[in-house]
């Protein structure tokens, strides 16, 4: 594989380097807050990347993607609550339940297209939201505190800030590598072909929905992993993580960074969450600034930030 020196790749490389060196900076300056913030950013970057797989490459505008954050998180939280603290059980369960949920939701939603697809994925995610809100044994509306983070034996200590950060970063890079392999594989080309012209793909012999569904399940499973990470990060999981506004946040990150660009959602997550952090220090109405900003991106930079960078020329 070759990476030509383009503005996009330079920015991506700088961001990767920055993310790798961040704990060092945090240690040297004693700025613990920045490590906490970026742990969260990295987790959301993984979730947004998984959404990008179906939204950007598959053309499926899922408005219920945060459901998997909650499902992954609750799998960890509920198992911990019931006394099963091993991550070797919690995490596979989180992934499996997310995959199963995606399979059912996908099989039903993918009968529809366009706005109907957006609405039906939203409806299912809201349904999941109300179901967990009603689980009084696990805190209902108030959420569930996780007293002990997932236990991976002597392998890794999730309570250590730096170790946990690198675990999240490893998951992000692993996820991106997986997505990169997928989008260039036979499967990935079919999914992108279906996004581009479904009728044509059927006419040359592809059962389009089968490929869409598998793609939908892969994305849900990856997002379930983000959910497991997020629950460990906050030591807490509540229905709020799967509320529709969270799904909206994920969509915004993808669009902001650049739909259908591998690294776009990472940039999107960084810009969105850093801006949120900075702006909310000045005003609680930070969304008033974020809104118009997003509007500008959608109107004038259709490929998001990565799209803008792609149009820049060096020298």
């Amino acid at each position: 594989m070759t990476f030509p020196i383009t503005p996009r790749n330079i920015v991506a490389a700088l961001v990767v380097a920055g993310l790798l060196l961040l704990p060092l900076y945090s240690q040297l300056t004693g700025n613990i807050f920045i490590l906490t913030l970026f742990t969260r950013i990295v987790i959301f970057a993984l979730a947004a990347s998984s959404l990008n797989l179906i939204m950007g490459y598959g053309g499926m505008m899922s408005f219920g993607h945060a459901a998997y954050l909650g499902i992954g998180g609750y799998a960890v939280g509920i198992l911990a609550f019931e006394g099963i603290g091993s991550g070797f059980i919690q995490w596979p369960v989180a992934l499996a339940v997310s995959a199963l949920f995606a399979l059912v939701i996908g099989a039903l939603s993918l009968r529809t297209r366009g706005v109907y697809f957006i609405m039906i994925t939203l409806a299912f995610a809201q349904m999941a939201y109300y179901i967990v809100s009603g689980m009084s044994r696990y805190g209902g509306d108030d959420g569930l505190t996780i007293y002990k983070r997932s236990n991976f034996g002597g392998l890794i200590n999730l309570s250590n800030r730096v170790q946990f950060y690198y675990l999240c970063l490893g998951c992000l890079f692993g996820g991106l590598y997986l997505i990169w392999r997928i989008i260039n594989s036979r499967f990935g080309l079919v999914v992108q072909g279906v996004r581009s012209n479904e009728q044509r793909m059927q006419a040359i012999g592809f059962h389009a929905n089968r490929y869409r569904l598998v793609c939908f399940v892969i994305a849900g499973t990856i997002c379930g992993l983000s959910g497991a990470l997020l629950a460990n990060n906050t030591d807490f999981v509540s229905p709020a993580v799967m509320y529709w506004t969270r799904s909206g946040d994920l969509m915004v990150m993808v669009i902001l960074g650049g739909m259908g660009s591998l690294f776009g959602p990472v940039i999107g997550a960084i810009v969105y969450l850093v801006l949120e952090e900075l702006l909310s220090q000045f005003t609680e109405y930070w969304a008033m600034i974020m809104g118009p900003l997003l509007l500008l991106i959608v109107l004038f930079a259709r490929g998001g930030i990565m799209g803008l960078l792609g149009r820049l020329r060096l020298g």
């Binding site: 594989s185 080309l189 079919v190 992108q192 072909g193 581009s196 012209n197």
Partner: peptide, 26 residues
């Protein structure tokens, strides 16, 4: 009715792919 985002050869190769085993290769 083609795949507008794809190159000419990708348009044709994916048609050949459709008739060459399965495409659940990731």
């Amino acid at each position: 009715s083609l795949l507008p985002d794809f190159s000419a050869i990708d348009n044709v190769a994916i048609a050949a792919q459709a008739h060459d085993g399965h495409s659940f290769r990731f």
